[in-house]
Amino acid sequence: MTTLHRIPLFPLGSPLLPQAAMPLHLFEPRYRQLIHDLGSLPADQQRFGVIAIRQGREVGTDHLNALYDVGCIADIRAIQPYADGRFDIVTMGTNRFILRDLFDEKPYFTADVEFLPDELGANPDAMSNRVRQHFERYREIVQMEDGQDVLSPDPTALSWEVAAGMLLDLDERQRILAADDTTSRLILERQLLHRELGLLAQIPSLPAFDPRQLPISSN
């Protein structure tokens, strides 16, 4: 029997990935209310779902059809309130979920979601070794300054590190998030890395890229 969980939902223009940090600047009244509501809960329950909008910046009247099916839980790690009611928060991606239903009875959306297991799939170790080699070459070429010299030996953790470290469009990042298991995710990443390495080989030089310096998302 499927177990559904009712969670607050934060639609954004880009998906959140497990193990990835996402800073947010909250100024809209609905998301100020969200932080006030979560602030009354124990620290280990201060979380909400992040899900990507298929097109544009707002859900509009399409509701479920405007959103991708798979999202990620954001655990709140730090909150900085301001006198005018705004908040800066830092979140960390944890569990993936599939969106089952959407509700708008509160100022912000809530949703019924089903948490997704992160299964390994077939032969993840062999695939992770191939992806590791491709990604290390990719980081070398783009001169990535991500502060992470050593990649995780764990295939699942590695798959999320690679996803966070690549420059991908919305659909590609969403496909990685929604992959059925770790091996499927690594296979997709190997394909994307192979494509990117081929393109990079045609470029004489690139400026250093630091994914930690990407702009803070605003609601």
Rank of each mutant, 00 (worst) to 15 (best):
Q148H: 14
P107L: 10
A179F: 08
E172F: 02
P8T: 01
L99R: 06
L17M: 10
R175W: 09
L200M: 02
H36I: 11
S152V: 12
I187T: 09
Q191H: 09
P81I: 07
Q133G: 00
I79C: 11
N129Q: 14
G71S: 08
F48M: 07
L158R: 06
D118C: 10
I187H: 06
G93A: 05
N123D: 15
P153Y: 09
Q55I: 00
M22V: 04
P155M: 06
E196L: 01
P207Q: 05
E172Y: 03
Y138D: 02
L38W: 08
I89N: 02
E28T: 10
L41A: 11
C72E: 07
R30E: 11
D112Q: 14
A163S: 14
A122M: 06
W160E: 06
D37I: 08
L17A: 09
G93Y: 07
F10G: 01
I176R: 05
G147Y: 11
A83N: 15
F27R: 09
P42K: 03
A163F: 02
L168A: 02
L67K: 07
A66H: 02
A52M: 03
P18D: 10
Y31M: 04
A83R: 15
E28A: 13
G85L: 06
A178Q: 12
A111W: 08
T183Y: 04
M1S: 15
R77T: 13
P11M: 04
A21N: 10
E119C: 10
Y68C: 04
D125S: 09
R185M: 02
F209A: 03
P18W: 06
D75A: 13
A21W: 05
P81N: 09
L4V: 13
L188D: 03
I89E: 02
G198L: 00
P11L: 10
G71P: 04
L26N: 10
D88W: 05
V142L: 12
P42V: 09
F115A: 04
L200E: 01
E28R: 12
E58G: 02
A157N: 10
R175H: 12
W160M: 03
N123K: 12
M1V: 15
D210Q: 01
I35C: 04
R190T: 00
E58F: 12
C72Y: 08
A43G: 00
I51E: 01
R32A: 04
I7C: 07
S14Q: 10
E140D: 15
F48W: 11
M1W: 13
L120V: 02
S14V: 13
A126G: 01
E114I: 14
C72Q: 09
L67G: 07
E136K: 05
L188N: 03
L192I: 00
R212C: 03
L24N: 06
G49Y: 05
G121P: 08
L9V: 15
R86D: 06
R132V: 01
V150S: 12
V50D: 02
T2M: 13
T61G: 05
R212M: 12
D69R: 11
M1H: 14
V90S: 12
